[in-house]
Design a protein around this nucleic acid. Structure first.
Length: 335
DNA sequence: CGTGTTTGACCAGCGC
DNA sequence: GCGCTGGTCAAACACG
């Protein structure tokens, strides 16, 4: 794995914000855009209505940091604290609804990798500053699950370039799936964000990436970079992200320098356990089905600005099959 | 040497 | 209580 070779990225938020967002009798929940953005903001994907229709710089430690909700570290982390402690506690409560232990408040007891060095004393910037663990404590520690959300993506590439550096700390075979699940932890010593990456057993082209926790720092890789560090809020119904090839990406996708263009219909789901095809746990999903196409690098700018019309929400056949009842009728084939 | 991956072992939670 | 499963640890290893 090498997230170090971060791709250039452009994220375009497309569209209107009129999706019906409420719970229904099927147990599938849709959220207001406020809540939706809150979810995103919980993970430091802070997209605000004010950001619509304007290009926003992306954080890479430069002056672009503020735009998309990548404020400076302190501010961001304070916001993160606030978000978790007060602003929208129910927002992701579904992710903590299973197992009594999950009702525990978000705390620093999430185990930290020994390879990350001694945990630094909390500066207030991280919501979950790792404690200095001793081995016994580690083993005996109760796992505390932080808010999570997952991308359901369609891609040949397992590991999405998200601007953060990850260290793989485990891999497990998944029951009823030929594909293993990989566990990653943010390499920032003060950051306890983790993510799992697995392929859908039903559709191997579908990647399920589950994030847990919040980053308390900037993207560390200059993400995106080289002239594509622009976030366009274009249509709130869709996020598109184009990632230009780097050695890593190219290596994963093929020999030639590649650029991929992603479209993320923004659909948020809370899946009851028995309807959850991806996990045994009851959690929220932000299902960003994206359809990947490879485009030439020099086309990225054009492509990312070439969405004059809101992209209709129309699940690809594979997505339809995969998601099934996750998407209520009124949300399907929206155009 | 620093960083990241692999992988078998261990642990906790859950269902029966 | 037992077995299964998911999640994590940590030593060994690979690589630049």
């Amino acid at each position: 794995m090498d997230d170090g070779d971060q791709s250039d990225s452009t994220i375009v938020f497309a569209g209107d914000s009129s999706w019906a967002l409420r719970s229904d009798s099927d147990g599938v929940y849709f959220f207001t855009n406020h809540r939706e953005s809150s979810i995103l903001s919980e993970f430091n994907w802070n997209l605000h209505p004010d950001d619509q229709n304007r290009n926003i710089g992306f954080c890479d430690g430069s002056d672009l940091a503020g735009g998309l909700g990548f404020p400076d570290v302190d501010n961001k982390c304070n916001n993160s604290n606030n978000a978790l402690q007060s602003s929208d506690p129910p927002l992701l409560v579904g992710s903590e609804s299973k197992a009594g232990g999950n009702t525990a408040p978000i705390n620093p007891s999430v185990s930290s990798s020994s390879s990350e060095g001694p945990p630094e004393k909390s500066t207030g910037s991280c919501i979950t500053p790792p404690e200095k663990p001793n081995k016994v404590r580690k083993r005996g520690q109760k796992r505390v699950q932080q808010p999570r959300f997952a991308f359901v993506t369609k891609s040949e590439v397992d590991h999405l370039q998200d601007g953060y550096r990850w260290r793989k700390y485990g891999q497990k075979a998944v029951k009823n799936s030929p594909f293993p699940r990989s566990y990653y932890r943010c390499t920032n010593s003060r950051c306890t964000v983790k993510k799992r990456v697995e392929r859908s057993s039903e559709d191997p082209t579908v990647i399920i990436t589950t994030y847990e926790g919040q980053h308390c720092h900037h993207t560390v890789l200059g993400f995106p970079r080289s002239g594509h560090g622009v976030i366009n809020i274009h249509d709130q119904n869709f996020i598109t992200s184009s990632t230009s090839g780097t050695s890593t990406t190219a290596g994963q996708l093929g020999a030639a320098p590649l650029v991929s263009q992603f479209y993320y219909p923004k659909v948020l789901h809370e899946l009851p356990k028995d309807q959850n095809p991806f996990s045994t746990t009851h959690e929220y999903y932000s299902t960003h089905h994206y359809h990947q196409q490879i485009i030439p690098h020099h086309e990225v700018g054009k492509i990312s600005h070439a969405f004059p019309e809101p992209i209709p929400l129309k699940l690809a056949p594979t997505d339809e099959g995969l998601l099934g009842d996750m998407v209520p009728p009124n949300m399907r084939n929206r155009s």
